[in-house]
Measured scan of single mutants.
Amino acid sequence: MTLTLTVPPGAKVRVRITNENGETTEIEVEPGETVTITLPAGSTVRVEVEVVDPDGRKRTETFTLKP
């Protein structure tokens, strides 16, 4: 399973991925970048995406991906 994120110009994104064992991976994606994350097959993962807009506003979306 893959997750692809494209960050709009001016925004910053931090992604936290937590697996079933509670292990967390965190990455930051710079403005204008596209990143593809390969998620472990057969695992349920929690993905938290934090977006910081150019004006400093933050918003966070959290979702769970199941196999």
Rank of each mutant, 00 (worst) to 15 (best):
E30N: 07
N21L: 05
E28R: 07
R16Y: 04
L65D: 11
E61Q: 08
V29D: 14
I27F: 11
K12D: 11
G42M: 11
P40K: 07
I17T: 12
A41N: 08
R16K: 06
F63G: 15
V47H: 00
T44D: 04
L5M: 13
R16N: 08
T60Y: 10
D53W: 14
E33D: 10
F63M: 10
T6R: 06
L5E: 02
L5P: 01
I37R: 15
I37N: 15
L5S: 04
K66S: 14
T36I: 14
T2M: 10
E26M: 04
V47K: 00
F63C: 15
T25F: 05
T34L: 13
E48H: 02
M1T: 05
R59M: 02
T24E: 06
E50I: 04
T34C: 15
K12Q: 10
A41T: 10
L65C: 15
T38Q: 07
T64Y: 15
G42F: 10
A11Q: 01
T36G: 09
M1D: 05
P9L: 04
P31Y: 05
E23K: 07
P8M: 13
R46Y: 11
T34Y: 12
G32I: 14
P9H: 10
T38L: 11
P54R: 08
T34R: 13
F63D: 15
R46Q: 06
E28H: 07
R59T: 05
I37L: 09
V52M: 05
V35C: 08
T25S: 05
T2A: 06
A11M: 01
L5A: 06
P54T: 07
G42R: 12
T64C: 15
G42A: 13
G10E: 11
T24V: 05
N21P: 11
V49T: 01
P31D: 09
E30A: 06
T18P: 08
G56C: 00
N19H: 05
T4F: 13
L65Q: 00
E33R: 07
V51F: 11
I17C: 12
E48R: 03
G56L: 00
V29P: 13
V47P: 00
L5D: 02
